[in-house]
Design a protein around this nucleic acid. Sequence first.
DNA 1: AAGTGGTCTAGACCACTAT
DNA 2: TAGTGGTCTAGACCACTTT
Lengths: 258, 258
Amino acid sequence: MQPNESKSLPASDTDSYSSAAPTFSPLYQQIKGLITQSLQSGEWKPGELIPSEIELAARFKVSQGTVRKAIDELSAENLVVRRQGKGTFVATHHEARSQFRFLRLVPDNGERSYPENKIIEVKRLRAPAEVARLLEMKAGESVVFLKRVQSFSGVPTILEELWLPGSIFKGLTIERLNEYKGPMYALFESEFGTHMIRAQEEIRAICAEEDTADLLQVAIGTPLLSVERISFTYGDKAVELRRGLYLTNAHHYRNELS
Amino acid sequence: MQPNESKSLPASDTDSYSSAAPTFSPLYQQIKGLITQSLQSGEWKPGELIPSEIELAARFKVSQGTVRKAIDELSAENLVVRRQGKGTFVATHHEARSQFRFLRLVPDNGERSYPENKIIEVKRLRAPAEVARLLEMKAGESVVFLKRVQSFSGVPTILEELWLPGSIFKGLTIERLNEYKGPMYALFESEFGTHMIRAQEEIRAICAEEDTADLLQVAIGTPLLSVERISFTYGDKAVELRRGLYLTNAHHYRNELS
DNA sequence: AAGTGGTCTAGACCACTAT
DNA sequence: TAGTGGTCTAGACCACTTT
């Protein structure tokens, strides 16, 4: 479990090069990897306190500063949250801070609010080839399909279809979804132990077809934003495919480039 | 020029509280601010080498570690680029790395390429109220207006209108623009000393109107991505307003959420 | 008062780049 | 060989939170 035996301390010996493994990586990166493993394995669950820097330093036999640098990066990547005086916690989708991290559609004028949610359909099916490919599964494996409409102040604005690996989201029922208030990612996290770390999106402009026009209560041909998202957990494992159609009459997709 | 006189060293005195100014901020943040000022003022220009960590530590009378942490953050914000063995350089839009930082439209299949550029129009005019507001200028001040079409493999894909503060972009002519090959931001930087640090975008779906349909060679009513961008230099000063209309038949806008 | 993360320092060695 | 940034350590004090 120990990291490289290559401290730079009293410079005693000739730093045994382990022959054929030129795997160089800074100590703090190795520590970061070990901590990430513990996050993946569920040793520390979302919302929980992880051991203090001093404890981790003792466990891994490195200095506190090295652990600190590892945790600094994990914190920058939103995997953990540091709180002065309290400790370091595993990141959660339940906190107010991260409520809007993955919801980029904002009203043209005014404050963000959380949308009302109407489930249209939930069913299990065998993954179509395209879905399987994107979720890195085998075609034909079980997936949960979900279709819903989200409204802001009563105005239907987002029509979304989701595909989720059936193996992970076993007991996902329409009742469960309707009971739950708040972000879907928070539900996924607390009920299924799946924490979305990052996501990538492909955005296009399209025209509303008949079905979607009905559900969003707009005219056929209305221009919509098509947002295809793949979300990943620890270890870059794809665990969600979403296709959202956003009505951008009174909202826009906001993005910060930096 | 010195930062706070509040070292934590031999703990000599009672840390004179300067009465009514409870301006707390970490030393390294103050150093970061001072370095940023030097970047703004043009003391070090894009592409240039800034003083070494040791020199800066001496100049500001702090330890190298403190300077390092300041520069670490500037590096994370893409204001400077560190190169081991060489030094730290002011960030540039000329480097390959940052060529596509602000160009998020990518082909559905295949590699990114830099588009061909066709200038439709360049003129100076008095800023309309809306433009002035977004660029934080007074209405009626001089702005440069620019309209262009960008094509990928001969297919017109982006129709863009730009508004730039006239005071900054004095000698911007259509010849200058046509001569220049490569990203427009690189031109802005080398010719006008304006480096874009960050930008924010508002994205909507719209239908092509007659003029734009002509220029993009598509049918009227074709759905397009409308991307409104405001770009900022040092000190969050707005220096560019852009409205792009993107054809997303063979391309998509790619975004990473993290 | 004790424990946590946050800041700051000082000094060591390493890896890379230039001369 | 000298200078740069990159890593690692050790120890100090601070600000915040809880007991």
